[in-house]
Structures are given as structure tokens and as C-alpha cells.
């Protein structure tokens, strides 16, 4: 095994192959990033309407709740295939990359909407009342008062989901997107030992995920420090 490793090293560690891996890495990262950023925006819009008090929006709210509950319960792999075949079947010429992005957006929207809803509910209701009395509309209360205070509850878990989606994108190698896992398969198929091909793959995923996990922890600590006093006041007012 070690002999094989030494034999293949000169073939494997070349500039061209390095660039190939780098491109795969960027593909993985951009899929997760596009999916989560768009999912975040959609998640916000979804929560805004889902929590709306307007009576005639009730059917829409039911629909949004159903969306969130359903799309958090479909495996990523199954949904990827479904989107792939549905887009082909109904004549949308989506590239594989975009099939993957659409899948991530659909699932990320549902997950992140739940995080955002929990974050917004965590802001004390007396902030709503106070804004209400000062004639703030619902949208303005959200914009000026509630959302800025809910970041501390939203950002850390949303960031963990982003990292989770980086790892999930490996499943899109099954439909043939050229991301990290596919790169591993490719090198394995041209004769590089699985240990070396998939090992590189593993290392690169780790190199993406681990620093981001650490960054997420730091963001969490910083946000919590910023809002420490805030939490204390809110707890006191619960008595």
C-alpha cells in the first residue's frame, strides 16, 4: 500500500491535478454558498408571511408550514434525483450544477426558515408591544427592532447548516456534478489508489469544514458577548 503510494505520488501531485482539485473545491463551495444564501433570503420571506397576522393570508400560511415540514423530511439524495428528472422531464435545461443548487435552495429554505422563526420568537414580546405603541408597522418593527436582535439566535445555527450543506453536496456526485467527491472518483477511475484519491477528497472537505466550524464558534461567542446585557434584561423582565 505504501509502495503504491510512493509510486503514484509523482503522477498524482502535479500542478494540473492541483488545479483540478481546486476547481472541484470551488464548485463544492459555490453550490453550498449559493444554496444557503438564496435559502436564507427565501427563508426570511417565508417566515415573514408565515407569521403574518392577516386573516386572508391563512391559506398561504398553511402552505408555507406544509412546505417547511415536508422539505425538512426528504433526503437530499432523493430530492436531487427528483429535481434532475423533473427538470429534464418538463423541459428545463438546467445544468447539473444548477440542479444541485436548486435542491440545496429547496431544502435550505425549509431548514433556515425554522431557524429564523425560532430566532424571531426568542426576541421578547415586549419589544413588539413597545414598537406597536409607537405606531411601528409590522414590517418596520421587524426591520428596525426584531431582526437586528434575533441575529444572535439565527446566525450560529444557520452557519452550522451551511457547513452541513458543504458536506451534503458530496451526494450530488451521484448525478455527476464536478465537485470534490466526483474529483475523488475521477482520480480513482484513472488508476490512482482509492486511499490516495478519496484521502485527498477527505482532507479537502476537512480543510473546508473545520476552519468554518471554528469561525462559527467565534462568531457565536462574539454575538453572545455583544448581547449578554440584552439577555440579562430580557430575563429579568420575565419575572
Amino acid at each position: 500500500m505504501i509502495q503504491q503510494f510512493i509510486d503514484q505520488a509523482p503522477i498524482f501531485f502535479t500542478l494540473n491535478n492541483g488545479l483540478y482539485w481546486l476547481r472541484a473545491l470551488m464548485t463544492t463551495l459555490s453550490m453550498a454558498l449559493i444554496g444557503c444564501v438564496v435559502g436564507f433570503i427565501f427563508g426570511f420571506v417565508l417566515v415573514y408571511f408565515r407569521t403574518s397576522p392577516i386573516p386572508w393570508l391563512l391559506p398561504l400560511r398553511a402552505l408555507l408550514i406544509a412546505y417547511v415540514e415536508i422539505f425538512r423530511r426528504i433526503p437530499f439524495l432523493v430530492l436531487t434525483f427528483l429535481i434532475l428528472f423533473a427538470s429534464r422531464g418538463f423541459g428545463f435545461q438546467l445544468s447539473l450544477f444548477w440542479v444541485a443548487c436548486v435542491t440545496i435552495v429547496l431544502i435550505a429554505t425549509a431548514y433556515i426558515a425554522e431557524i429564523i422563526r425560532a430566532g424571531i420568537e426568542a426576541v421578547h414580546r415586549n419589544q413588539w408591544e413597545c414598537a406597536d405603541v409607537m405606531n411601528f408597522s409590522r414590517a418596520r418593527t421587524m426591520l428596525y427592532v426584531i431582526v437586528p436582535q434575533s441575529w444572535v439566535f439565527i446566525v450560529p445555527p444557520a452557519f452550522s447548516y451551511f457547513i452541513m450543506f458543504i458536506k451534503e453536496t458530496s451526494l450530488t456526485s451521484q448525478i455527476g456534478t464536478m465537485e470534490l467527491m466526483s474529483a475523488g472518483k475521477y482520480f480513482n477511475s484513472i488508476g490512482i489508489s482509492p486511499l490516495m484519491a478519496y484521502g485527498t477528497c477527505l482532507l479537502l472537505y476537512f480543510a473546508l469544514s473545520y476552519p468554518l466550524t471554528r469561525l462559527g464558534r467565534r462568531i457565536e461567542v462574539r454575538l453572545k458577548n455583544r448581547f449578554k446585557g440584552n439577555m440579562a434584561t430580557l430575563r429579568a423582565s420575565d419575572q
Partner: peptide
């Protein structure tokens, strides 16, 4: 913990699937 929480389970599955026979 750090290893398994930061790597996709698909990749670790490949290792178990192709690595153990080695």
C-alpha cells in the same frame, strides 16, 4: 469527534466500504 463531524458521511462510507477489504 472533530474528524467525523467535519467530513461528509459519504466519504467516510467510501473508506469503510473500500478500505476494510484492504
Amino acid at each position: 469527534v472533530v474528524f467525523f463531524t467535519n467530513t461528509p458521511s459519504l466519504v467516510t462510507a467510501f473508506f469503510i466500504f473500500f478500505g476494510l477489504p484492504e
